[in-house]
Amino acid sequence: MENESDKKIEQIIEALESPSSFTPDELKELFSDKENLKIARSILHAKEALARQNIPAPEVDREWEKFKCRHKKKSTLVIFIGLVTAACITLLFILNFTKSFNKDLKIFEASRLTQTIQQDTINGQVVICIPRGMQKQIMLPDGTTVTLNAESQLTYDYTKFGKNDRSVIIDGEGLFDVVKDSLHPFIVQSEKLSTRVLGTVFNIRNYKTEESKVTLLSGSLKVVSLHNHESLKINPGEQAVLTKDNHLRSVLTSQTNAVTSWHNGEFYFDNQTLAEILCELGRWYNVSVIFKDKTSMNDRLHFKAYRNEQLSAIVELLNYISKKPIIIVDDAIIVGK
C-alpha cells in the first residue's frame, strides 16, 4: 500500500511535470514545505554536478517515461535517488515553475464581488460602503458632508454622534466639510491615524497600498499617530503623512487640487510612482495590476485624465509617457514584456 511519503513525492513529480494542473496557491504550499524544498535543492545540486562533468542531457520524453515507470515499483528511498538521477529532466520543470511563479508581481487584485453601494444600520452603528468605481456624498446628522471615494467605508454610532463628540471611522478616502461646533469636536479615526478638528475642510486618504495622508484645505486640525502617539498640527495647504515606519511628517502641498481632483471626477498624479498610479486605476476600474518589470514600479510620472474615460484610452495615454509598455489583458493591467 502506498504510504504518505510516496504520495508526496508523486505529487512533486506531477507538479514538476505539469505545473499548470495546480493552482498558484497549491504550488506555493507544495514548494514551501521544507522536505519538498530539500528534494528540489538536491536535484539542483545533482544538475550542477552533471554539468561540471559535461555529461550530455538525456532525451527528455524517453527518459522521463522510463523514470515514471520505474518509480511506481520502488521504495521511497529509491524514488528519491531516482529523482536525483533524473535531475536533467526535472530541473527544467523546476526552473520553469520558479520563473513563472516569481517573475510577475501582482500589486493590486481585481474583485469578483458585485460592486454596489451599501448602507446598513445595526444597533445604532451606521456603515456606508462605497465599492470600486463609484463615489458618493453623504450628510451626517450635524450637517457635515463627506464625499467618499471608491473602495471606502464610513462608520459612526448614530445614538452617540454629537453628544460628547462627533466621531466617525473611515477606511479608504474621504473629503470632509465639517460644520463648526466648538462644544463637540469632530474626530476621524482611521486604521493608523486620529484627526481632530472643530470646523474645517480636509481630505483623508487611508488605503493599504500606500502611506496614510491627511491634507488640510481650510481651518486647522491635529493629527495623531495611533502607533506611537506622535501628534502634528497642520495649516491649510499642508499634508500630514504617516510614513511606512509610523512617523508623522508635514509636507507643504502647493497644489491642493491634485489631492481633491478625484472629487471633481479626475485622475491627477503629480510626480507619483507608476505603482501608485496603476493601483488608483485598479481601484476605479476594478482590475488587477501586474508588473513583469519590477524596476519600473518607482518610475515617477505627471499624468491627468478623466474618470469617465474608458480604461483603454487612459492606458493608451500612459504608454506615451511610460518607459515600459502597458497593456490590458482580460481584467488586468500588465507592465513590461
Rank of each mutant, 00 (worst) to 15 (best):
S152W: 12
K180G: 13
F176Y: 08
K163Q: 09
V179T: 14
G162S: 11
G162D: 08
T159N: 15
T147A: 07
F176V: 04
L193E: 08
S194K: 12
I170R: 03
I187R: 01
V179G: 03
V179K: 03
L183K: 11
I169M: 04
Q153C: 15
E191V: 14
V168T: 04
N164P: 07
V179E: 03
L183A: 10
V188I: 15
V178P: 00
K192S: 13
V188L: 03
Q189N: 13
F186V: 01
K180M: 14
R166C: 00
L154T: 02
S152R: 03
V188W: 00
T155K: 09
V168F: 08
P185H: 05
A150E: 15
L148E: 02
V168N: 03
I169P: 02
K160I: 11
L175M: 11
G174V: 10
D157W: 03
K192Y: 10
I169T: 06
T155P: 00
V179I: 11
L183M: 15
L175D: 04
N149S: 09
T147D: 03
D171F: 12
H184T: 12
T159A: 10
R196M: 11
E191H: 12
L183P: 09
I187F: 05
G172S: 11
D177N: 14
D171T: 12
E173W: 15
S167Q: 10
K192C: 11
E173K: 14
K192E: 15
L175G: 04
L175A: 09
K180R: 09
Q189P: 01
Y158G: 05
N149I: 06
T147M: 14
N149G: 05
S194H: 05
F161I: 05
Y158P: 00
D165Y: 13
D157R: 06
H184P: 09
F161W: 08
K160M: 13
Y158R: 10
F186G: 01
T147E: 09
P185T: 02
G172L: 10
R196H: 08
K192Q: 11
F186W: 04
F161R: 05
K180D: 15
E173A: 12
T195G: 04
V188E: 02
K180H: 15
K160L: 14
D171C: 07
I187Y: 05
F186Q: 00
S190N: 10
D177H: 14
E151Q: 13
P185I: 02
A150G: 15
V188T: 08
D157I: 04
N164Y: 08
H184M: 09
S167M: 07
Q153L: 08
D157Y: 07
G162I: 07
S167W: 02
E173Q: 15
R196G: 04
P185W: 02
L193P: 06
N149E: 01
I169K: 02
L175V: 05
I187N: 00
G162W: 04
I187W: 01
F176C: 03
S152T: 05
S167C: 13
V168W: 02
V178A: 01
T155L: 08
T155D: 06
D177R: 06
S167A: 13
S152M: 14
D165R: 10
I169W: 05
I187G: 01
Q189K: 08
Q189T: 12
Y156A: 02
T195R: 00
